[in-house]
């Protein structure tokens, strides 16, 4: 409360995350002492500019959802910092954080679970405004109607309950609710994974349109690389709590450098039977983030030659080309010259 806040607002950067760690204690033994830690997020650095979409991909358990929650302070980070519009919000107390919360909102994967079934859609969409003490009842009602229009739902929806709607419509309600307080940044945690393809494309179109019209920034968390690539400007690939590669979306797809990124792209089924490939799928599974293997976790999974070298190393992201960051791991990253070995 007493510390002078050091605001360094950078015009183009909205969110800056530095060396963020989110560890959960594992307790055991007679006295429930801490015997270890789940390193769900283990030193992540990233930034999001105004009007930009950063896609975050990775498999389940890689820590991508935890990262999203730590950024919006639904979790209290273990170490590192989160700066939003220049304010360090990492350890900010709730009273001071609340007004800033307006500017970043979260949309969850399963709208059936994240929307209170006992509240009408009107109440659900108005709730963030109530918390932020925005407007009076009448003004809020008007704003709800506007928001429902905006996300493509009839105004009459306000009187109904969320369970009366289909999955796609419920996700629209979730988006309207997040937009209610005029945020600058939306953290979208698997916003379309629970939806059928034809509905998925409707919601993706809506998100892209909202971004164009309102200048929103997105952190788009998903496991579907094709979806992420479609909506993102830049993409970060996460593996076992760490970002292993980050670059422009087209560049990442055209020129993946990390073996894990390559494997992810390779594993996506291609919707074209004439391009059927006979590839050997990646072996193994993502290891447990409790006591992760030393050194490069992916190299350990695939027993990459040269893995031993990584054990003693402090593996970090390195910018190999402007805007293209890859972890400087000795076993998983092919040098530019040796690239294109496949086929």
């Amino acid at each position: 409360m007493s510390e002078e806040e050091n605001i360094t607002e950078n015009e183009s950067t909205l969110l800056e995350v530095e060396e963020l760690k989110m560890h959960f204690p594992v307790r055991g033994g007679v006295f429930s002492r801490q015997v270890g830690a789940v390193r769900a997020v283990d030193g992540v650095t990233l930034s999001i500019g105004r009007g930009e979409t950063l896609g975050l991909v990775g498999e389940s358990g890689c820590g991508k959802s935890t990262l999203g929650k730590a950024i919006v302070r639904l979790l209290k980070p273990t170490a590192g910092s989160v700066r939003f519009k220049g304010h360090d919000i990492t350890h900010m107390w709730q009273g001071k954080l609340r007004p800033l919360r307006q500017d970043f909102q979260m949309v969850f994967q399963d709208p059936a679970e994240s929307l209170d079934a006992r509240m009408s859609v009107g109440e659900l969409v108005a709730e963030p405004m109530v918390i932020q003490r925005m407007g009076n009842r009448e003004q809020r009602r008007e704003r709800v109607a506007e928001l429902l229009d905006r996300v493509g739902l009839p105004r009459s929806a306000a009187q109904k309950f969320s369970f009366e709607f289909s999955g796609g419509q419920r996700q629209r309600i979730g988006i309207a609710r997040a937009l209610a307080v005029n945020p600058d940044l939306l953290i979208l945690d698997e916003p379309v994974s629970a939806l059928d393809v034809s509905v998925q494309s409707q919601v993706l179109n809506l998100l892209m349109e909202l971004q164009r019209d309102l200048g929103l920034s997105y952190l788009f968390i998903a496991h579907d690389l094709a979806v992420v690539k479609h909506v993102s400007d830049r993409i970060a690939v996460m593996y076992l709590g760490k970002i292993v590669e980050m670059s422009g979306a087209d560049e990442l797809y055209r020129n993946p450098r990390h073996a894990y990124t390559k494997a992810l792209i390779e594993a996506i089924p291609v919707s074209d039977p004439s391009q059927r490939r006979d590839h050997e799928p990646l072996e193994g599974e993502v290891p447990s983030p409790i006591n992760p293997p030393p050194g490069c976790a992916f190299g350990h999974r695939v027993s990459a030659p040269g893995y031993e070298k990584s054990i003693e190393m402090d593996i970090r992201l390195k910018e190999i080309e402007p805007g293209h960051w890859v972890s400087d791991c000795p076993c998983c990253v092919t040098t530019p010259l040796a690239g294109n070995v496949e086929s």
């Binding site: 393809v197 034809s198 998925q200 494309s201 409707q202 993706l204 179109n205 892209m208 690389l225 094709a226 979806v227 690539k229 479609h230 909506v231 993102s232 400007d233 979306a249 087209d250 797809y253 792209i265 996506i268 919707s271």
Partner: peptide, 18 residues
Amino acid sequence: LLASIPRLESERKSELRT
């Protein structure tokens, strides 16, 4: 159905068929 899947090779941020 075939038109509404985002594909890796499609243009980014283009409107998807629905």
